[in-house]
Lab assay of single mutants.
Amino acid sequence: PDEFRDPLMDTLMTDPVRLPSGTIMDRSIILRHLLNSPTDPFNRQTLTESMLEPVPELKEQIQAWMREKQN
């Protein structure tokens, strides 16, 4: 489902985090971005790792969907 895909890389998220802007991304992708630029890739506001907020409900939904697909 589209809501499980990272908006920057269009890959399935495994550890979704919410940026201060409200955008949800995969943690590994935003951390890689932050190594090059300490900004939100969508609005260029300053962004640090400590500002990332886990989204455990979405992570659980993704994991359940993945388990379902394996069966």
Rank of each mutant, 00 (worst) to 15 (best):
F4H: 09
T14I: 14
L31H: 10
R5Q: 07
S28R: 13
R18E: 06
P16E: 03
E53Y: 09
I24R: 04
N36T: 14
Q45N: 08
I29N: 10
N36K: 13
E68A: 12
D2V: 14
R18V: 02
D40I: 04
R67M: 08
G22M: 01
W65F: 10
P1I: 07
D15W: 04
L19Q: 07
V55E: 08
S28V: 10
E68W: 08
P41S: 03
R32G: 11
M25A: 08
K69D: 10
N43A: 07
E68P: 06
N71H: 13
I29R: 02
N71T: 12
S21A: 09
M9W: 02
F42R: 03
T48N: 15
T14A: 07
L47F: 02
E49N: 15
P20D: 00
D40M: 00
R5C: 03
P1F: 09
R67P: 06
L19N: 04
F42H: 04
E3R: 08
D2F: 07
M9R: 11
P16H: 00
Q63W: 11
E3M: 10
E3Y: 10
P56R: 05
R67Q: 09
L52C: 06
L35P: 08
L31Q: 09
G22Q: 03
V55M: 09
D2H: 09
L52Y: 03
P1E: 04
L52W: 01
R5G: 06
L47V: 07
D15L: 01
Q70F: 06
P20R: 04
E49Q: 11
L34P: 06
D40Y: 05
E57P: 05
M13P: 03
T11A: 07
E68G: 08
P38G: 13
L35V: 13
M25T: 02
G22P: 01
E3A: 10
L35E: 15
N36M: 11
D6S: 00
F42C: 07
T23L: 12
N71L: 12
R27A: 01
I62D: 03
L52V: 07
W65D: 12
N43G: 08
M25F: 09
E57H: 12
L47R: 00
T39L: 09
I24P: 00
M9P: 05
K69G: 13
N36D: 11
R27D: 06
D10K: 10
T48Y: 04
Q45M: 13
M9E: 15
D2N: 11
P20F: 00
R18P: 00
V55T: 04
P20E: 00
P54M: 01
M13G: 06
I29W: 05
S21G: 10
E68M: 13
E49Y: 08
L35S: 14
L47K: 05
M13V: 07
N71P: 15
P38C: 09
R18K: 14
I30N: 03
E49S: 12
P1T: 06
K69L: 06
P56L: 04
R32D: 13
A64N: 13
E57A: 13
P20K: 04
